[in-house]
Amino acid sequence: MKAMREAYGEELVELGKTNNKVVALDADVSGSTRSALFGKAFPDRFFNVGIAEGNMAAMAAGFALADKIPFINTFAFLMAARATDPIRSLIAYNKLNVKVVGAYGGFSDSYDGGSHQAIEDVAIMRSLPNLKVIIPADEYAARAAVRAVAEYFGPIYLRLNRAEVPPVYSTDNCSFVIGKGNVLAEGKTVTIIANGYMVHRAMQAREILLNEGIDAEVIDMHTVKPIDSELVIRSAAKTGAVVTAEEASIIGGLGSAVAEVLAVNKPVPMEFVGVKDVFGESGDYQQLLSKFGLDTPSIVQAAHRVIAKRSSN
């Protein structure tokens, strides 16, 4: 098992070997984001701009204008807070080919506390036109995502996790198509749509539910935007009950995206597992996830609630 950031850094180096248009920028956290690996391999194509996230993002716009493929790197909360103006006004507005990589998503920078934990980044990035938003589930998905976003021409927000996330995929079975959710397990009773680390949690929840005789369908919705509407509608039509699980604020993230699709096309009862409009705090990552309702039992309970709601309708 490898930390997602490690996998990201290694894959970026691989990308650099085959594509000399790729450049990487970092804002003095390259040791943390692991963009430093790229810097070591390709010093001429690596630019550490210091603690200046806005400058980094706008510089990347300039690189993209000259047909480079810039990957910009810093913590997710800084990307969404400090760099959002150039991401909005230059990168998204002009559909520039910049890959915006938010490291340390969710609570994964656990000990640094609420000041450093990104819960709002998904909602902010999702609201920007032209910008795709991707949250891979594990190290294999992260590697596949790096390759996929480099191949795609246009702006993308790629949100990563700091931690060693238990794998959902393995090297040879990770299908990753931007905008297409992966059905990891089929089921008939309830749909669980998750992304990031929560995909693994959703699979654990599925096991527990199975023992109770509840057959849950689990979808890895790694692309929050554009959401795979067809898959969401199809699964909701089958199960009639949907739980979303994400390591981000329930305001504006994956749950909202799924609700937007279902409210219009296939209204069914929903439950949202995510951060309930609060900031985080320091602590052990797993303990934090439990405290904020992002653990496996939370998903199981949400499934129970949503099934009950469907039955009472």
Partner: peptide
């Protein structure tokens, strides 16, 4: 900032 990206 964007000009710097172009110049680089």
């Amino acid at each position: 900032s964007a000009g710097i990206g172009l110049a680089l």
